[in-house]
Simulated scan of single mutants.
Amino acid sequence: MLIDMDDILCRFSHYQLIFYIRVFVQVFSGAQKCKHTTSKLSQVYHCTGCGTFALHPLGVLKTNEKNSKLVKFGIPTGPPVSHRCEHCGHPHHIGGPIWSGPLHSPDFVQEVLDTASEKLCTFKRIQGVLSVIKEELLDVPLYYALEKLSGTIHVETPPMMSIRSAILNAGYKVSFTHMNRTSIKTDAPANVIWDIMRCWEKEHPIAKKRLIENTPAYNILAKQLEKDYSFAAHPAANPESKKLGFLRFQANPLPHWGPGTRATAMVGENKIKKSKRNQGKRKREASQESSDANQD
């Protein structure tokens, strides 16, 4: 949505408009605003093996050291990755451009939290989701899923607090995202993330028979550890929204919610699918009608 809106606004940069797409969007005019667009859009290089991603912005901003108001717009060099993934040796898919700028305004999110009434039926959901959004890292557009990191190297999935603590103990920032309860949104580079996973595998080794040559797991675990990471609990690993017991990730609306099983029918003592029972139904009915007519 942000990319489409930004594209439309750049075409009409001399106007100051307000669009209505379930939210109010304030538009600022000026050619310079359009030039900032390229720094907020990025191509994504996504590894087909381990899922590691790298962003390549369409444009860069260079601020004058003497006068911070003077900004020079440039085109970046690249790509940011080689032909093969440095972690697992597999090729990349290229996607995008995606919006790589901030996704929300912390001040606006806080204002909504302050003004939301507890009388609303959905207050707990609003409170939980917005609290997670407020805790998200603004300068990190994408995230990892913990179970996918573990699945790539076939290792036992570590507790979320342990991984978050390891990242924080290494001096990096980390947060959840409201999109996924097992998300890891961090400014730590990919080599640090995989090094932490190697540390975890060292403490929880996998069966050697699962390591097949030239697979992502084999290539990642074959590398030596750059350093040892501590999984000791970090004070900031547990976010405030979780400590306060907010409804951070929405539950299914009803028990057993979602697609059900195929309809079945009892035929004698056997349970068969209705679709199978109804095969040739019209022919059988026509045959029965013909038989009844002949008897008459």
Rank of each mutant, 00 (worst) to 15 (best):
I126D: 01
F108L: 13
L61D: 13
H90W: 15
H87C: 03
I21S: 09
H87I: 12
T115P: 00
L120T: 06
F108T: 12
G74Y: 04
V23A: 09
D107M: 05
L137T: 05
L103S: 12
Q110N: 12
T122G: 00
K72P: 00
L142R: 05
T38K: 14
H93V: 01
V71Q: 07
P141G: 09
A31P: 00
L138Y: 04
G78L: 08
Q26V: 11
L17Y: 06
L142E: 12
H104V: 11
E136G: 07
C88E: 06
V140G: 01
K124I: 01
C47L: 05
I98Q: 05
C85M: 06
Y45A: 02
Q127R: 15
L41P: 03
D107T: 12
K72G: 03
Q32F: 08
C50P: 08
F108R: 10
C47G: 08
V132N: 02
L113Q: 14
H56Q: 14
H56S: 07
T38N: 12
V140D: 05
L120V: 03
Y45W: 15
H87R: 06
Q26N: 10
K40S: 11
P57Q: 07
N67M: 03
F19L: 15
Y45S: 07
E118S: 15
A31W: 06
E136A: 07
K40L: 12
C50G: 07
V132G: 02
K40F: 00
L70Q: 14
F24G: 02
T52L: 01
D139L: 05
C121E: 11
I75L: 11
T77I: 05
V81G: 01
F123D: 05
C47Q: 04
F53I: 02
S42Y: 03
I21A: 12
Y20P: 00
L142N: 07
T38D: 13
T48S: 13
G59E: 07
K124S: 10
L103N: 09
K33E: 15
Q32R: 15
Q32G: 01
L41H: 09
D114V: 01
V27F: 06
H87P: 00
F28S: 11
I18V: 15
V27C: 12
C47K: 04
T115A: 08
F19P: 01
S100R: 04
I75Q: 10
G30E: 11
I133K: 09
F19C: 06
E111F: 10
Q110A: 15
A116V: 14
I98E: 11
K62G: 01
